[in-house]
């Protein structure tokens, strides 16, 4: 069944949604949306470096995304407001990445494929990387779940319970870098943050517990991937953006639902 490119695309989308759901919840709860953006945008620099040194795109993007995330963590609270800092870093990383790509002579690369993803070209090898990375991310978050939640609620409360908030932040940072690296093929660097945030935000009105929100976000993400791919096939639209559009419509629907129904 993996011979069918549509099947491979669907499996890739589902894999990314699987990893993005629990991580996306933390991105929403901790107000890290910009942080996700900055990490994702830096990945294009990773692509350029991977091509220049002819190493695996997955490794290159992950390393650069991780460096970016660590830089942001280190610089935060040092004189600039977080959104300013992230605005500077995210867009300069993207710009430097785009410039760097243009320097790579002799390599013909489809820049659009990295900016918006190329889910229909997912190979079996890509699938293995995506599912391996996604499993790693979900296991990492499941392992640290209670500690991460406590840290998210209040860092001093975490300290008092013997949890080191910096370590938990590092866990999320690492998970984010892996997710960016595996999602680049599916939605591209420009839309990774959307895949993190939109399913989680859409799940919020339907949930009463953090675990429930992560599971519902996962379901919404996976459905968006399947329906988005189908829509892209039928209407001949770009696949990555179509997936994000379906997720956005789901967000709209659950938000309206929250409006007409008393808060649960």
């Amino acid at each position: 069944m993996l011979d069918d490119f549509m099947m491979r695309a669907a499996l890739a989308g589902i894999g990314v949604a699987f990893a993005a759901a629990p991580l996306g919840c933390f991105v929403v709860w901790r107000r890290m949306a910009y942080f996700g953006d900055a990490t994702a945008h830096a990945a294009i620099l990773g692509v350029a470096l991977s091509l220049a040194f002819s190493m695996s795109i997955f490794v290159g993007t992950m390393v650069v995304a991780l460096l970016m995330a660590l830089t942001v963590s280190a610089l935060s609270g040092r004189g600039y407001a977080m959104d300013t800092l992230l605005g500077v870093l995210a867009h300069s990383a993207l710009a430097f990445g785009l410039v760097a790509v243009s320097f790579i002579a002799g390599v013909r690369i489809d820049l659009m494929a990295y900016l918006f993803g190329d889910i229909l070209a997912v190979s079996r090898g890509d699938l293995a990387v995506i599912w391996g990375g996604a499993t790693l991310v979900v296991s990492l978050i499941a392992w640290r779940w209670s500690a991460l939640l406590t840290t998210t609620l209040n860092e001093d409360l975490a300290h008092a319970s013997g949890i080191n908030p910096k370590r938990e932040q590092l866990v999320l940072t690492l998970a984010l870098a892996i997710t960016v690296a595996v999602a680049i093929k599916v939605v591209g660097v420009l839309l990774i943050a959307a895949l993190l945030i939109i399913p989680a935000a859409a799940a919020r009105p339907l949930s009463r517990a953090p675990e429930g929100m992560a599971i519902i976000a996962g379901l919404i993400g996976m459905l968006s991937a399947i329906i988005g791919l189908r829509a892209a096939y039928v209407f001949d639209t770009p696949a990555g953006p179509s997936i994000v559009c379906v997720a956005a419509l789901t967000f709209l629907a659950t938000s309206v639902l929250k409006g007409v129904r008393p808060q649960i």
């Binding site: 929403v28 409360l157 953090p210």
Partner: peptide
């Protein structure tokens, strides 16, 4: 064993959590 009650704790509306689940976070 130290029980700590912080000064103020802002619970983000985006995080759905019941009192019972909050208390179970300690394990």
């Amino acid at each position: 064993k130290i029980g700590y009650v912080p000064q103020k704790l802002h619970i983000d509306e985006t995080l759905p959590i019941t009192v019972a689940r909050f208390l179970r976070l300690t394990g």
